[in-house]
Design a protein around this nucleic acid. Structure first.
Lengths: 135, 135
DNA sequence: CCCATATTGATACTATATCTCAATAAGGAA
DNA sequence: TTCCTTATTGAGATATAGTATCAATATGGG
């Protein structure tokens, strides 16, 4: 992550190192506030600034939970979407989904020039389904 | 809108009348704060409470703008999506989109039990495209 | 080693929304 | 019509998420 920022001309500072290391060690999504509590030595503004930089650089993606809360998560690829489990909160990336094609088609039909979209998918992951069935 | 609330056992109060009338007269989406400024006689908490009731009852839908701001809009149908113009802010409903089918398929492939989703589509509407071309 | 400047952090501030709780209003029952 | 239970309201405090300001500091190229 720091490399990515470096390539984009940003300086490698110790607050940024702390932030990127903390994020790299995380699994799953988290809020800005959780990150802040985990890094009491880093100022609030710096936390938010770093998150914004990382989102813009593509290293991090935003996740909108069903309750409206905004979380962040390491991004393992380019533009993609999430399957969010409403039970355990886990998230898997949605793969092999050609929603872009579909949206392009319907946009054209509405004489609308598509420039972007936001999609989140909610439901129950396999683990939680299994537990519900056996437990 | 009041009827819908009435059917669900909610009382018909004058603040609720004021809110539903103001919303019915609006075209396009609006923020809770805009509604509040329009109805200075109604308390802030009541505005938000009414909005939540109306969203839950299905009369109102939430609209997430590209800048992250949450707006509200009269809902003319059941679950649907919006084509949001990033230029003029207008919104048209996305019709004839079988995204539910697509999502059901890919969810199954991920062994994920779909329960809901959130989709917003951003771009430029026909009017703004025309203006850009001729203007 | 120096210096221009990117970056930081303390703090104030904004926006959005919820919570608390006493006062009030709605509407069914008598 | 009046009474009474209870839903609802509103003022204000509180919570949450994020941005703006700006002097002090740290970075990294020269």
């Amino acid at each position: 992550m720091l490399d990515t920022l470096g390539e984009q001309g940003y300086r490698s500072t110790s607050p940024r190192k702390a932030v990127t290391q903390a994020i790299a060690a995380k699994q799953g999504h988290f809020t800005a506030e959780q990150l802040r509590q985990q890094l009491p030595g880093v100022g609030r503004a710096t936390i938010y600034r770093s998150l914004k930089l990382l989102v813009d650089s593509g290293a991090l993606c935003r996740v909108l939970l069903e309750d409206g809360n905004l979380h962040y998560q390491l991004s393992h690829q380019g533009h993609h979407h999430h399957l969010l489990c409403v039970e355990c909160g886990s998230s898997q990336d949605l793969l092999g989904c050609d929603i872009e094609d579909l949206l392009r088609q319907v946009s054209t039909a509405h004489r609308f020039q598509l420039s972007g979209h936001w999609l989140e998918v909610y439901g129950r992951c396999y683990d939680c389904l299994s537990e519900a069935a056996t437990g």
